Amino acid sequence: MIEKLLLENILFLDIETVPLEKEFSELDANTQMLWEQKSQYQRKDEISAEDFYDRAGIWAEFGKIICISVGYFNIGENFKSFRVTSYSGNEITLLKQFRKLMIEHFSQPKHLLCAHNGKEFDFPYIARRMVINGITLPYKLDLFGKKPWEVPHLDTMELWKFGDYKHYTSLKLLANVLGIPSPKEDMDGSMVKDVYYEENDLDRIVSYCELDVVTTAQVFLRLRNDELLSEDEIRKI
């Protein structure tokens, strides 16, 4: 029962990713061929691998992380706050910063990671990019040898499935049906690549990522039938 979990033991997170290069033409010939092979089952016959390259950020082999936002509860006898911070920019640097956070503050058996669709995207993506960049996996992302019930990951989309393996619900839709106030966002996930490569506006992406972390935490609270966070309880650090 998620009601029994201590909120202070959960690290909520979200990531934003983009293709490794701005344009398909910037990839070497071998990587272009591998991308064409990888994407052939996702794109329609009339769509070329080059035209489909805008979606390369979805795959850890052809994308990179430009932002990891995290949030965690700080709860005392007479107060509650949700603290949000982000690591962004150079991928190797932000991955090392995120790893340091987990090792120093979220490495105990009681600690859990939580994201929306995290088991299918965020958690494996971070782990793969760490391996690709030669960064040793922290215990919470190294799943080798762990039994299913030993995996320290929570997923708000999985919790909403209630055993339905075919059901996909976006974070935005889930927040809406649960009555969670929608934050004022000036972008969506489909815009991240252009905002990063064309507008060079990383701060805008970080703000968007942090809003998703807050929304994920709010969804988790609603799934527990807890009171939602108020604006003055959310603090950026």
Rank of each mutant, 00 (worst) to 15 (best):
I66K: 07
I66M: 08
I66Y: 12
I66V: 07
C67R: 00
I68L: 05
S69K: 00
S69I: 00
S69A: 11
G71E: 06
G71N: 12
G71A: 08
G71C: 06
Y72M: 03
Y72V: 01
Y72L: 00
F73V: 04
N74M: 06
N74F: 02
G76Q: 14
G76Y: 12
G76L: 09
E77R: 15
E77V: 11
F79A: 02
F79G: 02
F79N: 06
K80N: 09
K80P: 11
S81K: 13
S81I: 03
S81T: 14
S81W: 00
S81E: 14
F82Q: 06
F82C: 05
F82I: 03
F82H: 08
R83M: 01
R83N: 08
R83L: 01
R83A: 00
V84R: 01
T85S: 13
T85E: 15
T85D: 00
S86L: 04
S86R: 11
S86T: 03
S88T: 05
G89Y: 08
G89E: 11
N90V: 01
E91V: 04
E91A: 08
E91K: 12
I92W: 05
I92E: 13
T93R: 15
T93H: 15
T93P: 01
L94P: 11
L94S: 10
L94W: 08
L94A: 12
L95P: 12
L95Y: 03
L95I: 01
K96I: 05
K96E: 15
K96P: 03
Q97H: 09
Q97L: 03
F98M: 06
R99F: 00
R99L: 04
R99T: 15
K100L: 02
K100V: 00
L101Y: 10
L101I: 09
L101V: 13
L101W: 09
L101M: 13
M102C: 15
M102P: 10
I103D: 15
E104A: 09
H105I: 00
H105M: 05
F106N: 08
F106V: 00
F106R: 04
F106W: 07
S107R: 08
Q108G: 07
Q108I: 05
Q108M: 07
K110A: 07
K110I: 06
K110E: 13
K110D: 09
H111C: 04
H111E: 07
H111V: 02
H111S: 08
L112Y: 13
L112F: 13
L113W: 06
L113A: 08
A115Q: 07
A115G: 10
N117T: 11
N117W: 11
G118R: 11
G118S: 14
G118V: 10
K119H: 05
K119D: 04
K119Y: 03
E120D: 10
E120W: 03
F121W: 02
F121T: 01
F121N: 01
F121A: 04
F123P: 05
F123Y: 04
F123C: 04
F123M: 02
P124R: 07
P124Q: 02
P124F: 02
Y125I: 02
Y125E: 05
Y125A: 02
I126S: 06
I126M: 07
I126V: 09
A127F: 10
R128K: 11
R129M: 07
R129G: 07
R129K: 12
M130D: 13
V131G: 06
V131L: 14
V131Q: 15
V131A: 11
I132C: 01
I132Y: 11
I132H: 13
N133F: 03
N133P: 12
N133E: 09
G134A: 10
G134V: 04
G134Y: 06
G134N: 14
